[in-house]
Design a protein around this nucleic acid. Structure first.
Length: 427
RNA sequence: GCCCGGGUAGUGUAGUGGCCUAUCAUGAGGCCCUGUCGAGGCUUCGACUCGGGUUCAAAUCCCGACUCGGGCGCCA
């Protein structure tokens, strides 16, 4: 291990302590007789101070000449100093350049000059060196950690299902075809079928956090062709039960981010508050009244926006027309025109959708046919329904959308390291 | 895919026919400076996306390509 301390580990009370720090040269300020090197590591900045009189000439000249963003190791003593940022600085005895950075740099890391998103994404490694961008991904980590902890605590087992599949799972969206040896295959659009099969397998409660792929040529700030989906499926429960799991999860994610990411939220200039439970339930029928659309149509952007403004915070849209939802969604027995499906909405956009699933093999087969799909392609799935499939329900939540709405970012590309969209396949 | 708006040094910008051998900031090079914290001062370097056209004259106007952004659609 090269370093002994991160910048955050040191306080003025460490005065006199010998430390080894490692990171990037954020800036150097050469005042002639005194030179400051601002060293940046993952946790923040630390000032390394050299006085011309008191420093070995070789070391002094080395530090003055070192290029920005070079990677260095600094060994020295902590000194309590009121004039320094955070009231301490490092007086170096030894500095090693581990790797020199070329110049000019593709981006400014210090925040003095802006850059377009496109430019930033081309040099994402450099973009993420900026503290506000890094903060987003630290928060993303805490969100994922909270989701896992919460679902574990609610009796869920984490699973992994194939991303290379033979057939579409639910129709609707376009799939990316790939070559699988001598056969055609596709990238998975959803773990839906597999997580349902796990209900028949008796795993009772499962979740998966993984990539899903959509081959749609959309070109918007809230769509990507590869996104992370948080999917759950649970047996012996109703759609109402999984809705309440979902809203508790959202609440937990917000409250944990508020608790664990104070510094990151401050960097982003955000004052988060935890959404109030329970979220409002709005029927599809009432929802279309707010907009201007026909029964049976999906909500367009304008309607989504209008309803969002009226609701003001997270809400569910429930009881959708059966024809608008996938074949595995269970219709109400007393009114099969509508089904036990729900969407979780943030005022800005949809975050999740889920439902009570059909668990009767015969009904499921009929629904597949009714939606114009061929049940032969679903045999591996339908078999699980023949030999003891319990009633079950579940949902899928878009991780990036959760993040972008929580952090009030206007482009979904901001919350994913390397976005895949219609035009971008690298880096 | 449709509609609208862009593309000027490494980065972010100003400039909408001649005043452009193109503005400013940041950066990079050189010099000065012992408490900077967006350090400061002096100085140098570095750019009009590409192809065609109009015109005495094009960064500027027109056409096409490529590309970026916004809105919508597709999609969840």
């Amino acid at each position: 291990m090269l370093r002994t301390h991160y910048s955050r580990d040191i306080t003025p009370d460490d005065d006199g302590k010998k430390v080894v720090m490692a990171g990037w040269v954020h800036e150097t300020r050469d005042l002639g007789g005194i030179t400051f090197l601002i060293l940046r590591d993952r946790e923040g900045l630390v000032q390394v101070t050299l006085s011309k009189k008191k420093t070995d000439e070789k070391l002094f000249n080395l530090i003055r000449s070192i290029s920005r963003e070079s990677v260095v190791l600094v060994s020295g003593l902590v000194k309590r100093e009121g004039k320094a940022p955070n009231n301490y600085e490092i007086i170096p005895s030894y500095v090693q350049v581990l790797n020199k950075a070329a110049s000019p740099l593709p981006l400014d890391v210090t925040g003095k000059v802006g850059a377009d998103l496109d430019t930033r994404l081309d040099s994402r490694f450099m973009d993420i060196r900026r503290q506000s961008i890094k903060a987003i991904f630290v928060i993303r980590h805490h969100v994922l950690k909270t989701i896992r902890t919460f679902l574990d605590g609610s009796g869920f087992k984490e699973i992994n299902t194939p991303k290379i599949v033979a057939t579409a799972t639910e129709g609707g969206t376009a799939l990316f075809p790939i070559t699988y040896f001598e056969r055609e295959a596709f990238l998975s659009q959803s773990p839906q079928l597999y997580k349902q099969i796990m209900m028949s397998a008796g795993l009772d409660r499962v979740y998966e956090i993984g990539p899903i792929f959509r081959a749609e040529e959309h070109d918007t700030t809230k769509h990507l062709n590869e996104v992370s989906s948080v999917d759950i499926e649970a047996s012996f429960v109703t759609h109402k039960d999984v809705m309440s799991i979902l809203e508790f999860l959202i609440e937990k994610v917000y409250s944990n981010v508020i608790k664990s990411c104070k510094n990151e939220l401050e960097i982003l200039g955000l004052q988060l508050s935890t959404p109030k439970l329970p979220f409002k339930r709005l029927s599809y029928e009432k929802a279309i009244d707010i907009g201007d659309i026909e029964w049976g149509d999906d909500l367009d952007t304008a309607t989504e926006k209008a309803i969002g403004e009226k609701m003001g915070s997270h809400y569910f849209i429930v009881d959708w027309p059966t024809e608008t939802k996938p074949y595995y969604t269970e219709p109400y027995a007393d009114n099969p025109e509508i089904c036990k499906a729900f969407d979780l909405m943030h005022p800005r956009m949809e975050l999740a959708s889920g439902s009570q699933r059909i668990h009767s093999h015969d009904l499921l087969r009929r629904r597949i046919k009714a939606q114009g799909l061929n049940p032969d392609g679903f045999e591996f799935y339908l078999r699980a329904f023949k030999c003891g499939m319990p009633p079950h329900a579940g949902w899928g939540l878009g991780l990036e959308r959760l993040l972008m709405t929580m952090l009030n970012l206007n482009n979904i590309r901001e919350v994913i390291l390397f976005p895949r969209d219609r035009h971008r396949l690298a880096p």
